[in-house]
């Protein structure tokens, strides 16, 4: 050992060590862990989907392909009503929250920084920061009070509650879009004597379009998937699809639940994939 040291003053060791690390970025076991995560995230859902097509009543033993459970689910009045309530609530929440979020995004990006901007961000994002169960029981308390004072009932409460927690989700992509849009085109239009309203409708809004679409889709998905807030405040006859599914699971597991679940998952996944494509377009 001592001989080569004297022969070669610069130790050869670093180079050897260095060569051992073939790929600078690789870490042992990391690739396997990543795949494990993907399998963990997707395997349960894939099993659920697979058994929604099972001929048998079992959600365990595969006997053959069939669409019976979908037929059953679509014939089920409870499911149809719940689906209709879900769509109604989600559409209302999407329209209201997207309009409110678009206006708020314009206010927070298209005007100069102002005092209280941090507070405004805080308020808009508030529904994201508080545990959902807390918002749920708090909203329930408010609505119970309002109902007692006014005697008004109806699905409006549920719709408003959904609109509130959808706002931050609609706001995020719209604000992101506005932040990447330059003011040049709007300024050019204004220089050509377009009145502010025309600048907005003919220039800003079309450019902002993809952001608004993205925001609306997120709001729709978030409303469609909500469980906890809806569970606490929905009155009789206001059962949404997720609440119906929760009740059905408590009563006992059937492939019919798998079929409804698959439909709901498919709707969300399709919307999100569409969103992904819209956003990729936006980046170009």
């Amino acid at each position: 050992m001592a001989e080569p040291m004297t022969a070669m003053p610069a130790s050869p060791q670093p180079r050897q060590r260095r060569r051992l690390v073939r790929d600078l970025k690789a870490m042992p076991g990391f690739t396997a862990t990543a795949w494990l995560c993907i399998v963990t995230l997707y395997l349960p859902i894939l099993v659920l989907i697979a058994f929604s097509f099972n001929e048998n009543r079992s959600v365990v033993l595969w006997t053959g392909f069939s669409l019976d459970w979908y037929a059953k689910a679509l014939e089920n009045d409870g499911i149809r009503n719940a689906a209709w309530v879900s769509v109604k609530v989600a559409l209302f929440a999407t329209v209201i929250s997207t309009i409110a979020a678009t206006m708020a995004a314009l206010a927070t990006t298209r005007t100069k920084p102002f005092i209280g901007q941090g507070l405004v961000y805080g308020i808009i994002n508030q529904p994201l920061m508080i545990p959902e169960i807390v918002t749920a029981i708090a909203t329930l308390s408010l609505f119970a009070l309002v109902k007692k004072l006014t005697g008004l009932n109806g699905i409006g409460y549920l719709m408003l509650a959904h609109a509130a927690f959808c706002i931050p989700f609609a706001y995020m992509p719209i604000r992101a879009r506005l932040e990447t849009m330059t003011l040049t085109l709007e300024q050019a239009a204004a220089d050509l004597y377009a009145p502010p309203l025309k600048v907005f409708t003919l220039v800003t809004l079309p450019l902002l379009g993809p952001g608004i679409v993205a925001g609306a889709m997120l709001a729709f998905v978030v409303s469609l998937d909500d469980v906890i807030i809806t569970l606490m405040i929905a009155g009789p006859g206001e059962t949404t699809l997720p609440i119906y599914i929760l009740g059905a699971i408590r009563r006992g597991i059937t492939p019919e639940i798998n079929a409804v679940s698959t439909i709901l998952v498919a709707v969300s996944v399709l919307l999100v994939m569409l969103l992904f494509i819209v956003q990729r377009r936006m980046q170009r």
Partner: peptide, 17 residues
């Protein structure tokens, strides 16, 4: 522009707290 979003969240999310 800020009024609708803030009004909804203040009334439905913050007032209940």
């Amino acid at each position: 522009l800020l009024a609708p979003a803030l009004a909804i969240i203040l009334a439905i999310s913050i007032l209940p707290l």
